[in-house]
């Protein structure tokens, strides 16, 4: 019993991070219709920036974290301006190749500086706690609560602020939103910056647990994409649910058959897609 609780808890804590990455996919997808395969690199950038900034002596940790998120958001804004905006009316596949190009450039640029693996200290708290016989680290609790906090903040932002409503209008109908006078270009750029920032937070949260290196982005991006599709592309609650499901599938998969972690996780994803082709929280197809 405690074993099952343990896997589910570990799965949820890592899955929340996948959920945050998935939200990044959803934000850009909703406003621009583009699946941003560079999303994983934002996660890696967030982790690596925080590693680099925390090494500067005398800098308070919270400033480092804020700076790391801000720098990654800047990369996101720059990416939209230089690589996405020049292509008008791109097909799904063309846009995918462009974002893959961006991800190759970001990855190699970080690789120029360092190819080592890094870890940053966990957020403060007791080393581990016990819930229903399973142990859980304080970092895991931090991850879950920060994850939930971000989802709530994002929900409030999209629901109650003018910019948030404008972003939702773009998701509803891009052409009409532009006709109504919304600055479509600026809003797409904003969605890229926002998803880069959220990706960076995910990266900063996962670095204390699993280490971060220049190559980790691809893998994390794939997991996030899985979460986004599984939950129903474009749905924010779906993204979190999808991410958590991937996390649980991954941790339990490793127990069922060692060495087949990814095989089992992705088999579950595919089975869910076959049963519900529009994703768990997705609407009409």
């Amino acid at each position: 019993m405690s074993g099952i609780v343990q896997y589910i808890l570990t799965g949820i804590s890592i899955g929340t991070i996948y959920g945050l990455i998935a939200i990044g996919f959803d934000l850009t997808y909703n406003t621009t219709g583009i699946i941003n395969f560079a999303q994983g690199e934002f996660v890696m950038l967030g982790g690596m920036f925080s590693v680099a900034l925390l090494r500067i002596p005398g800098m308070p940790a919270w400033i480092c974290i804020v700076l790391a998120i801000a720098l990654t958001s800047l990369v996101g804004l720059a990416m939209e301006r230089t690589a996405i905006r020049p292509v008008k009316s791109a097909s799904l596949t063309t846009a995918i190749i462009i974002t893959i190009g961006v991800s190759i450039v970001i990855k190699a640029s970080v690789g120029c500086f360092t190819k080592d693996e890094f870890v940053i200290p966990s957020l403060p708290g007791p080393v581990s706690m016990r819930i229903l016989g399973a142990s859980i680290t304080s970092q895991a609790i931090w991850n879950m609560s920060i994850g939930m906090l971000i989802v709530l903040a994002l929900w409030a932002f999209l629901k109650y602020t003018f910019v948030g409503i404008a972003l939702r209008a773009m998701a509803e109908d891009r052409t009409n939103a532009a006709n109504l006078g919304l600055a479509a270009d600026r809003l797409s750029q904003l969605s890229f910056g926002l998803s880069a920032g959220i990706g960076a937070i995910a990266g900063i949260l996962i670095t204390p647990i699993t280490q971060m290196s220049w190559l980790r982005g691809t893998d994390l991006g794939l997991k996030g994409f899985c979460g986004a599709v599984l939950g129903g592309m474009g749905s924010l609650p779906g993204a979190i649910i999808g991410g958590i499901l991937i996390g649980i599938a991954e941790t339990t998969g490793n127990v069922i058959l060692t060495g087949y972690k990814d095989v089992i996780a992705f088999s579950i994803v595919i089975l869910v897609l076959y049963i519900r082709p529009q994703g768990i929280m997705g609407g009409r197809l």
């Binding site: 995918i96 899985c226 087949y260 990814d262 095989v263 992705f266 994803v269 595919i270 897609l273």
Partner: peptide
């Protein structure tokens, strides 16, 4: 993208096996 996801998964499963 659901097709993209499913085929991506098939590829990862073949690689993993």
């Amino acid at each position: 993208h659901y097709l993209a996801m499913a085929t991506l998964g098939i590829g990862i499963i073949i690689y993993g096996v």
